[in-house]
Computed example of a mutant assay.
Amino acid sequence: MNKKNPLKARNFPSAQDEASTVRLPSRYAGPNSSFGMAYADTEFLLREELRPVRMQLELMKPELIQQDQGVESTIVIFGSARFKSREEAEAMLSKARAEGDAGALAQAERMLSNAHYYEEARRFAQLVTNEADALGEPVIVTTGGGPGIMEAGNRGAHEAGGRSMGMSIHLPFEEDPNPYITPELCFQFHYFAIRKMHFLMRAVALVSFPGGFGTMDELFEVLTLAQTRKIRRRPIVLFGRKFWNRVINFEALADEGVISPADLSLFHYVETAEEAWEIIKRTYREDDPALTARQVREA
Rank of each mutant, 00 (worst) to 15 (best):
A152F: 07
A254H: 08
E275C: 04
A262P: 04
G30K: 13
R51N: 09
A299S: 13
Q16F: 04
R10C: 01
H190S: 12
D288S: 09
E120I: 05
A132R: 12
T129V: 10
M60K: 09
L7K: 11
G166I: 00
E49D: 14
D287Q: 13
F213G: 07
A193R: 09
A106F: 04
R51Y: 07
P31H: 12
G100Y: 06
F209E: 04
N245F: 04
L105G: 06
G148I: 05
S168I: 06
S164M: 00
R202H: 09
R241D: 06
T228L: 15
T272F: 08
F267E: 05
F124I: 04
S80H: 07
A125C: 12
F220H: 07
I231Y: 10
Q188H: 12
R233Y: 14
I140F: 02
A81L: 03
R233P: 08
T21L: 11
Y191C: 00
L253I: 07
A134C: 15
K95L: 13
V71Q: 08
R155Q: 14
F250C: 06
A226L: 14
E256Y: 10
R47Q: 15
H158W: 13
K95S: 14
S260E: 13
R294V: 14
G162Q: 01
M60V: 09
N114D: 14
E120G: 03
Q188K: 11
Y191E: 00
I236F: 11
K230V: 03
I181G: 03
H158N: 15
D287S: 10
A262T: 14
L291W: 06
N249C: 10
V141W: 01
N154K: 06
P25H: 02
F250Q: 09
A106P: 00
P183L: 02
E18A: 01
N178H: 10
A38S: 11
N114I: 03
S94F: 09
G211Q: 07
K61H: 09
T292G: 13
E218G: 03
P179D: 10
M55P: 00
G70E: 08
V247Y: 12
A254G: 05
G144V: 00
Q16H: 10
A121E: 04
M37D: 05
R27D: 11
D101R: 05
D255A: 13
G30N: 15
A293E: 15
Y269H: 10
A106I: 07
S14G: 12
I279A: 02
P179E: 06
N11M: 12
